[in-house]
Simulated scan of single mutants.
Amino acid sequence: MSSISQADTPHLTLVSSSEPTSKPTSKRIDPVAFLQAITASLDMGRVLTMLNRYLFELVEHSGWEYANSAEGLAFEGGRTDRHRLEYDLALNGADMGRLVLMRGRRFSEAEQERIEGLLGLAAPALKNALAYQTVLTQLESDPLTGLGNRVALFREGAHWLADAVRQSRPLSMLVLDLDGFKRVNDQFGHPEGDRLLKDVAKSLRAATRASDLCVRMGGDEFVILLPGTDLAQAMECAERVRQAIAHCSSETATGVRIGVCASIGVATHRPGLDLDALYAQADDALYAAKRAGRNRTLAGTGCATAMVRDSAQPQAPLC
């Protein structure tokens, strides 16, 4: 491992590289044009895309990856390839994640120097984009459960819906409500209700994929957005979620175990539906499930009807 540092650049730790065999090239970029381009947006994805466009002009890499585990960020572009350069990025002692560049032939020392010079110029823009991402994360997170909130649903959902339409991929939504939750607050108090909501949030994460978006809309209403998921798969996910919640419980200070069950509405995107219409369809199915007896999973209008009910009740009969 070798450390590389330059004035006015981030600290760049070269984690791994190939032996330099490529002939040096004389490619250069206009630093003013580069700075104007990379500072035009605070969106992390756009900043990284612009950075890699200019890196391609220098070294013609075939693929790239960026990851920042502390912020939960992961981006990639192009394709994986044989030879890799991996940089751990830091500025003023702050970790800014890891960037990986790939291509079929090895990177020369001269190319590495140009890469590092460009990363030095890009460092402030990357830092600003990360700060902006942190603010967005805070604005889009539910402070009690750590799940996404309504802002996250409609911001991320708009992107996912556009991708689903463009790529002709399915997109489904679950809307769920905890049956009898008001009685938990009334009987045991809001602190116990909050504790149960946190446990429910953990159950939602455990029953869904990392790529799914779990949201607390407010109170005891939750939404799960499922990219690349058709109706049959969404119904299976909804049933896993329903059963997980039915087995979710918390214990009060006096040793009483309390739990709830859930009614879930499911909807799958069809041509002409926007995100609001998809939510309305799943929400209608939710209330149809409640009217049908609660603790059920029901598909919305326009979907093939399916219903599941488990006779097992949670430990506290509050459904």
Score class of each variant (00 low, 15 high):
152 A>K: 15
32 V>R: 11
141 S>D: 02
102 M>A: 14
78 G>S: 06
103 R>A: 12
98 R>P: 02
24 P>L: 05
246 A>F: 00
312 A>P: 01
193 G>C: 03
12 L>I: 12
202 K>Q: 15
243 Q>V: 12
243 Q>M: 08
142 D>S: 11
313 Q>T: 10
283 D>P: 02
116 E>F: 04
31 P>L: 06
162 A>G: 08
104 G>K: 14
201 A>Y: 06
297 T>R: 04
207 A>M: 06
139 L>K: 01
204 L>P: 03
19 E>M: 07
252 T>Q: 04
213 L>P: 00
234 A>T: 08
108 S>N: 12
102 M>E: 15
20 P>L: 03
31 P>W: 12
199 D>M: 13
48 L>G: 06
61 H>M: 14
166 R>P: 00
94 A>K: 11
270 R>D: 00
296 R>A: 11
6 Q>L: 13
125 A>P: 10
11 H>T: 06
123 A>M: 11
78 G>N: 09
16 S>C: 08
134 T>N: 07
27 K>D: 11
8 D>K: 14
233 Q>K: 08
26 S>R: 11
114 R>V: 13
294 R>N: 06
15 V>S: 08
147 L>V: 09
307 M>W: 03
99 L>D: 06
291 R>M: 02
268 T>L: 01
279 Y>M: 11
75 F>V: 05
34 F>Y: 15
10 P>Q: 11
272 G>K: 12
244 A>P: 08
12 L>W: 12
64 W>H: 12
104 G>C: 07
284 D>M: 04
215 V>I: 15
153 L>A: 11
232 A>I: 08
101 L>K: 11
174 L>C: 06
